[in-house]
């Protein structure tokens, strides 16, 4: 199902060239999705007042980067790639992100216990 189609050329349908619609999907297209996720996550981090919302923004950012890694490592998208490095780095990022989320969540719960709020704007005891 989700195997990238590689058939068009070999299938004799060579008529589809660069300019026709739809354009073949390239690394750049994946990068755009990655960039969108990254930016959405970054803005989410900056604007959300709920600490958990901020954490979700971080997840989005990491996923944007992960998508880049996978796209750079994909054999189906270009000839000379990052290779398995891309996929492996994505794997490790997923694991590290899980660890980070666990800690951040524990800290957020601790904050909630002490402040009875999860609003990061209320985290203003410390300033100067």
């Amino acid at each position: 199902m989700l195997r990238p189609p590689d058939g068009l050329v070999a299938d004799g349908i060579t008529a589809i060239d660069m300019d026709s619609f739809p354009p073949p999907i390239t690394v750049s297209h994946y990068l755009v999705v990655g960039a969108v996720l990254f930016v959405l996550g970054a803005v989410c981090m900056a604007t959300k007042r709920n600490a958990l919302g901020v954490l979700m923004g971080i997840e989005l950012v990491l996923n944007g980067a992960n998508l880049n890694f996978v796209a750079f490592g994909s054999r189906f998208l270009r000839q000379d790639t990052l290779g398995l490095d891309g996929e492996l780095m994505a794997l490790f990022v997923i694991v590290l992100a899980a660890a980070e989320a666990a800690v951040a969540l524990a800290i957020a719960l601790n904050f909630y216990n002490n402040h009875t709020t999860i609003d990061v704007d209320h985290a203003d005891d410390l300033k100067g």
């Binding site: 989700l2 195997r3 990238p4 994946y30 999705v33 958990l52 954490l55 979700m56 997840e59 996923n63 992960n66 998508l67 996978v70 796209a71 490592g73 994909s74 054999r75 189906f76 998208l77 891309g86 996929e87 994505a90 794997l91 997923i94 694991v95 992100a97 899980a98 989320a101 666990a102 969540l105 957020a108 719960l109």
Partner: peptide, 30 residues
């Protein structure tokens, strides 16, 4: 799904398992 599409099946399954099934459940728990 995009990972699967780019041919990274293992990463895709990992994403579903750890990220979606683990991390996000944890987040929702929080």
């Amino acid at each position: 799904g995009l990972f699967f599409l780019a041919g990274a099946q293992f990463v895709g399954a990992m994403q579903l398992m750890i990220y979606v099934g683990g991390t996000l459940v944890l987040l929702i728990f929080g």
